[in-house]
């Protein structure tokens, strides 16, 4: 079990010494604009947001800046390595992010295939080892393989973040068995990262015992992102409460809820 069951109302999760009351981490990509982005992050009740690191646009230095809308004073920034296909790219990006923001908590994501966006786990593990040696606290995007998840934890990952389905696909959690096994075995937080499409997907992730859910497109690409952000917040809370409450066993046949005696005759 990755976190101890806690009293109602005091349920938090802790990554690399930082404690969060919200178990919903949101991305900051694909929104209409940064204002909508900020409103969605607020509506989601998020305390942590992922951000990317990119070249400044020198032809328009006055373009809107993320930090003016989604403030690093209000949200914990989790710099990612999205778009990196080698360990070296990822490390270079995160070193720049650390210098820009001063944060050591980062999201490692090393992709392999541009169509599926599946992670290259060999490169990911190698990059993780280098980043840990360099003092980073690394939350690792990974495949939903319980064996690989353990290897990441052994290498010092601050959190294991298996995909539920390909990034941006909205297909929901494809392998519930594996996600459950990863959540059961890990001693660091497990965060489903990628694949959530709608609220029930987020609830399922939490019911499986995950500590949190990370999503971007499911909120940003909804017709009403702010309303979906609220739905996701509620779904994560509902799934977490269901997990903590201990669900009833599944049965193959019906079992009446009302007394089966003392009928009128």
């Amino acid at each position: 079990m990755s976190t101890a069951k806690s009293e109602r109302g005091t349920d938090t999760f802790t990554v690399a010494g930082r404690t969060f009351a919200s178990r919903l981490i949101v991305g900051t990509g694909k929104y209409k604009d940064y204002a909508e982005n900020a409103a969605a992050a607020e509506a989601a009740g998020a305390e942590m947001v992922t951000v990317a690191v990119r070249r400044v646009n020198l032809t328009n230095p006055d373009e809107p800046m993320l930090v003016d809308y989604v403030s690093p004073d209000r949200f914990v920034f989790l710099p990612n390595t999205a778009g990196c296909f080698t360990g070296e790219d990822a490390i270079r990006t995160l070193r720049l992010a650390r210098d820009a923001g001063g944060w050591s908590l980062v999201k490692l994501e090393v992709l392999s295939d541009p169509d599926t966006l599946y992670p290259d786990m060999i490169e990911t593990l190698r990059a993780l080892e280098l980043l840990v040696a360099d003092g980073f606290d690394v939350m690792v995007y990974c495949s939903d393989d319980p064996v690989m998840a353990r290897r990441l934890e052994d290498a010092g990952a601050a959190a294991i973040m298996p995909l539920g389905a390909p990034i941006g696909s909205g297909l929901g959690i494809q392998n519930q068995l594996n996600i459950r096994l990863i959540a059961e075995e890990a001693k660091v937080p497990v965060v489903v990262d990628a694949g959530v499409g709608t609220a029930s997907d987020a609830a399922i992730a939490m019911e499986l015992g995950c500590d949190a859910v990370l999503m971007n497109t499911a909120i940003a690409a909804a017709k009403d992102p702010i309303r979906m952000a609220v739905a996701m917040k509620l779904a994560v809370q509902a799934g977490r409460e269901a997990y903590l409450s201990g669900r009833m066993p599944k049965k193959l046949y019906g079992a009446a809820s009302s007394p089966d005696a003392d009928f009128t005759t």
Partner: peptide, 10 residues
């Protein structure tokens, strides 16, 4: 010289 900043991302 490379100059980068934080932008929206998932």
């Amino acid at each position: 010289i490379e100059i980068v900043r934080f932008v929206g991302g998932g």
